[in-house]
C-alpha cells in the first residue's frame, strides 16, 4: 500500500470535499426553511476543501520529497502482501460461499486456508480450524440463537 504524504492526502481530501458538495447539491431544505438534508454534507464538504487546501499549501516547502510515493515495506514482500490478500479473500469467500455451503464447511475451509497462507503447521492448522469452527458454531448458533447459514451437508453436527 502506498504511504501517502501530506500533499497526497491534502489533494485527496480536497477532491473528496468537492465530490461531497456535488453529490449533495440536489438535497432540498426542510419546507419553509433554509436548512435541511444538504446542510451537513455541504458543511463537511467545505471543511474538507479548506483542510485539503491548507495541507497542500503547508507541503509546498518540501515539495520534491512530498511528491515521491512511498511503498509500505510489506507491499514489497510477496509473502506479506499475499497474507493481506488472503485475509481479505477469506472474508470474500465467506460472503460468497456460506449460503451455498453452510457455516461449518465455509468456516473450516476459510480458517484452514488462511492459517496455511500464514504458514502455520498443517496438523496444527487442521486441528485449530476444526475446533474454532465448532466452538464458534455452537456458541453462536446454539447458545446465542444466531441463524448461521446451514445446509444439509454436515447438518448432523448442528
Amino acid at each position: 500500500m502506498i504511504k501517502l504524504s501530506e500533499l497526497h492526502l491534502g489533494v485527496l481530501t480536497a477532491f473528496g470535499g468537492i465530490a461531497l458538495l456535488l453529490a449533495s447539491a440536489h438535497f432540498g431544505p426542510l419546507p419553509g426553511q433554509a436548512y435541511g438534508a444538504g446542510t451537513m454534507p455541504r458543511l463537511i464538504g467545505w471543511c474538507a476543501i479548506l483542510l485539503g487546501a491548507f495541507m497542500i499549501f503547508a507541503s509546498f516547502r518540501q515539495l520534491p520529497e512530498m511528491l515521491k510515493p512511498h511503498l509500505a515495506a510489506w507491499v514489497r514482500t510477496p509473502r506479506l502482501a499475499g497474507a493481506a490478500l488472503a485475509t481479505i479473500a477469506v472474508v470474500v469467500f465467506y460472503i460468497l460461499a456460506s449460503e451455498a455451503l453452510g457455516f461449518i464447511p465455509t468456516s473450516f475451509i476459510g480458517l484452514l486456508g488462511l492459517m496455511l497462507a500464514l504458514r502455520a503447521h498443517l496438523l496444527t492448522a487442521v486441528l485449530a480450524s476444526a475446533v474454532t469452527t465448532l466452538v464458534v458454531y455452537y456458541g453462536f448458533s446454539r447458545l446465542l440463537m444466531v441463524p448461521l447459514p446451514r445446509t444439509e451437508f454436515l447438518s448432523f453436527l448442528g
Binding site: 477469506v90 456460506s98 468456516s107 476459510g110 474454532t132
Partner: peptide, 22 residues
C-alpha cells in the same frame, strides 16, 4: 498464524449476528 484467523472468523460471525445479514 493461528490466532489471527481465529479472530477473523469471530469478527465475521459477530458482524453477521447484528442484523443476521451478509
Amino acid at each position: 498464524s493461528i490466532l489471527m484467523p481465529m479472530i477473523l472468523i469471530f469478527c465475521i460471525v459477530g458482524s453477521f449476528a447484528i442484523a443476521n445479514s451478509m
